[in-house]
Design a protein around this nucleic acid. Sequence first.
RNA 1: UCCUCGGUAGCUCAAUGGCAGAGCAUUCGGCUGUUAACCGAAGGGUUGUAGGUUCGAGUCCCACCCGAGGAGCCA
Length: 426
Amino acid sequence: MKIYIEDIAKYEGQTITLQAWLYNKRSSGKLHFLQLRDGTGEIQAVVFKGNVSDEVFELSDKITQESSVEVTGTVKKHDRSKIGYEIDATDVKVIGESVDYPITPKEHGTHFLMEHRHLWLRSLRQKAILRIRHRIIKSVRDFFDNKGFTLVDAPIFTPNACEGTTNLFKVDYFDENAYLTQSGQLYMEAAAMAVGKAYCFGPTFRAEKSKTRRHLTEFWMVEPEVAFFDIYDDMDLAEEFVEYIVQEVVKHNREDLEVLERDISKLENIKRPFPRISYDEAIEILKKKGNDTEWGADFGGDEETLISEEFDKPVMIHHYPMAIKAFYMKQEGDKAACVDMIAPEGYGEIIGGGQREEDIEKLKAKIKEQGLPEEVFNWYLDVRRYGSCKHAGFGLGIERTVAWICGLHHVRETIPFPRLMDRLKP
RNA sequence: UCCUCGGUAGCUCAAUGGCAGAGCAUUCGGCUGUUAACCGAAGGGUUGUAGGUUCGAGUCCCACCCGAGGAGCCA
């Protein structure tokens, strides 16, 4: 059976063979210290001249960084090792040689690392991020599964712009134009009428020429939608959801968070209830802090940060002016029954959602008002024609959530192969 | 798209308008306990590209290309 470093304690005193990569090496006369990693952990193998053949000792001196190797030896307790064990090697074989590995164990600039993203993933920090991303995605699925939601996949090719205004990626679809989806929401509204509680989870695309630490052109979004839900049910669901994700990571990924030097106490504090303020109250907070955002304007990154500084938990801002929100939002006077959740510590908006307009006439009027083509939304209007009901949902951006939980400055490290305005490779 | 800053060895960075350098990486040598090991030596450059000013340009001017940070928009 294959032996992994994470299980090494089980083999104390036994002679085993590991398959791994050499991530660093140190030598001292008749000793070579091979730093090995196999994706499940790191361990040091000690090659002593007296314990191995001359050929193996010579080979151990020559192995290059990131070569794949097979090391045989005895598992021994070692106090100075991080995992408490090391391997007293008796044999070393090179499986695949590595020549001139570009990422050295010293500092590198972001651009250089992004050009070598496929290799950068091998580093300790990047592995920790990948594992936390995995945990977040698993928690998303578990949360909705435990609550009786059905995963309903939304299409990637869409004929229409869901929110109209934002820039979409246009693709040639035989003799027609199609767009890469920017949201599965409209499809989830239809799905909620079928299964009651629906969610989709997949990549979405925005062709915005945004060059900031919060933007990718391809990002992953999870979008639940529930029939007979109003805006307050929606907020209850959102805070329970976010609490669950954060606490699952705290519970299962403590070591990864430590590698990233994340302040875990700040995450442990993310428990319900989260503060809820109206848009009007948010404007008041901004005024008090000397920000001159006028009533009626949307909030930018600076405003989100100012508001989030007031709280040590994610804050939900609800009931924005209808004028700055999309056509499908449920109108209540001059406000929309919508909610944004802003992560603490300046990580920005992680959730946007709300109650949808269930009245077909009001929806038609909004479509006309915003100059959208009614014919492409005809199927969407059917959701109101046949047994319409109030319903609500939200979208959570995975990469911003990963950035917040990992404490990363930029979303480009939160996804294995980021797609940015000026990056399509590797 | 706009604003700000930058581009020098494989990487990270120095160099008052006056001989282009260091650390790491690489190669060679030394060390029985190293933790981004350490010590010694060597190789490595059309200073992003094209013009211009000057006795002399990595350094000053102009254009372009590329990158970093931020804004708008958004998750």
